[in-house]
Design a protein around this nucleic acid. Structure first.
Lengths: 338, 338
DNA sequence: TTGTTTTGCACAATCGATTGTGCAACAATG
DNA sequence: CATTGTTGCACAATCGATTGTGCAAAACAA
């Protein structure tokens, strides 16, 4: 039985009917095409028996539908994107779409190449998560008539659903200020922002929320309080080490802009004597289950993945992606009242 | 310019040539089909200009090739599978395959349904990672002539590449024994195994390695030292709480069988006074970057994802998947010498 | 019985790209 | 000039499923 994948023609011959009849039965159009109940049963039995699977290339070609929905994400390396993948698959399956998740490594060239490939497979919808260049992606989708939404990082050509980064950063910053202990040395008596990229919208909004809250609660913000050193653990580690040496110790508080950056921070902190760490209060924008049980407490902001993607699907569902609105979803604060 | 996706026929008309000429140019067969250099250049220019993308449904149908390689994984929720996704995508791209990763939630029905759908899209290869029923998946692939390899959990119908769970568990168990402090109370002076499923091969091998080492170094193993309570954090939390109450405290050491189970364990331990935790040595089969910086040390076994998948690709590359061998890859110990 | 409807299905065109083949136009050779 | 080769491309069949249409046979009506 190790035959080639069989076609509806093979099945048709076995059943003694025509291919169009088989097609009608298998695609549930038997009633509409007035196929006798006995014929339907027979074809279904044979299809089952021979483990027949439709060729979706052929089907998709004929119907100009692929049944595919794509999502691009930057990386698979943290909980936020893991949760996005999981929720995406669930929501897609609920709608009888077949989900494809691909990571594009924050590489603009790979990003657009990936999208073009997805389009060549004729995906019908695309969720564009954390894209470095959402507008290029949007244009490509538009040229193919493919519904699309930006998530996490917004674009200007399609509706975007993003975390309320400004509000989240304000809350986290305020909590860091309230829960940290003042320090005598002026430069150390500050909260420092570490990680992310200043070219990236989410980081900009978080920096803004951070700066406003610091200004309101502690006076001015100094330029050197903000180091959007990038999205790699190593870079954050280097950045923190430099800060530590500059200040001659840890500062009053740290606002870490991603769990990846937090990884680097943790690597540096682990090497310090525990006593030093007690004086520094740490917060992280994004959540990780283990980070909540580190040897020092970490205040965390958890993005509402279900709400973000739920809204994104609603938008592709009703085709309201073209009006380029910005929808903001409040994240969840993973720290109780003082 | 918001036209429908254009076809090679549209492009042919624009260029004043036939569709077959366009096809030859775009698929790099211009030389073989003796297309004039000037014609090639013109077609390429127009293709570029109009951002033409080939319809891979049509192309795949005609050539009986899709260019797709699939991988199924159980979940997106831990580092092992995240790293698998990332490495899979990289290795696939190196080979000019287009990668599709789908999670099947450890649900046998979803698993086989997913594989059938992937087959209906005519994927050409499949990496079957951590499948609950690898042999059913293998049979489906075989029926379609699709190359496939099992990874992480082995099957009997295709070659499997798995972590050397037995060896890894032995190393981890020995380290737990050597690094932990003996306890007076007999039942607490033991290492306990928590998490995973005893129906699952990896867990069986780890339990075996654990039991052998315990027997060799500490005498007999008691049945109640092993609780393969499942793959959810909640279950591990419940299991550990029960153990704690049964023993009247934490045991000498814990062998946690996955980072997910470790999440539950950590939730329980966080609620305990720190002094109690100091006496319990913890090890985890699987690695997480944050888990290495918890408030208590965790010995970890990190699977060699690159080697696992590298080997898997080698096997699909040379088509040696049918001999149903078992290839074991040693994991990496994330703890130094004593 | 004859005419009309309904039932049940087959036929053939089609989706868009690929590929074996055929054939002008031109060049090279004798 | 006649013959043979080469170049450059078009034509048409094909992949497997879908779907508009047509047409016997059966069922029903008159």
């Amino acid at each position: 039985m190790r035959k080639r994948a069989s076609t509806i023609y093979d099945l048709a011959e076995l059943a003694g009917v025509s291919a169009s009849t088989v097609s009608a039965v298998l695609s549930g159009k038997a009633k509409a095409r007035r196929i006798a109940a006995a014929t339907v049963a027979n074809v279904q039995r044979l299809a089952e028996l021979h483990k027949f699977t439709l060729n979706r290339q052929a089907s998709g070609l004929r119907r100009s539908r692929s049944g595919l929905i794509g999502m691009i994400i930057p990386m698979h390396d943290n909980r936020f994107f893991s949760e996005m993948s999981r929720a995406f698959e669930r929501l897609a399956r609920e709608r009888h779409w077949y989900p494809i998740v691909v990571s594009t490594l924050r590489d603009p060239a790979l990003e657009i190449e990936t999208v073009n490939t997805l389009l060549s497979y004729r995906i019908e919808q695309l969720i564009v998560t954390g894209a470095t260049d959402p507008d290029s992606v949007g244009r490509a989708c538009r040229a193919h008539g493919v519904a699309h939404v930006n998530v996490d990082l917004p674009g200007t050509t399609a509706t975007s659903v993003v975390s309320d980064n400004h509000w989240g950063a304000q809350q986290l910053t305020r909590a860091l200020i309230e829960r940290s202990k003042p320090m005598k040395q002026r430069a150390r008596n500050r909260i420092y922002f570490v990680g992310g990229l200043s070219t990236d919208y989410a980081t900009q909004r978080r920096v803004a929320g951070f700066a406003e809250t610091v200004t309101a609660d502690m006076g001015a913000v100094h330029q050197e309080q903000i180091d959007a050193c990038g999205y790699e653990a190593d870079l954050a580690e280097v950045s923190l080490r430099a800060l530590y040496e500059r200040l001659g110790g840890l500062p009053r508080g740290l606002f870490i802009n991603s769990t990846i950056a937090l990884e680097g921070v943790v690597r540096f902190l682990k090497a310090l004597p525990p006593s030093q760490m007690g004086a520094c209060t740490i917060g992280c924008y994004d959540w990780d289950p283990f980070a909540s049980a580190l040897s020092f407490p970490v205040l965390m902001v958890r993005q509402d993945v279900e709400a973000l993607l739920g809204e994104a699907f609603r938008i592709v569902d009703n085709g309201t992606f073209a009006d380029a609105r910005l929808v903001e979803i409040k994240p969840q604060l993973m720290f109780g009242p003082l």
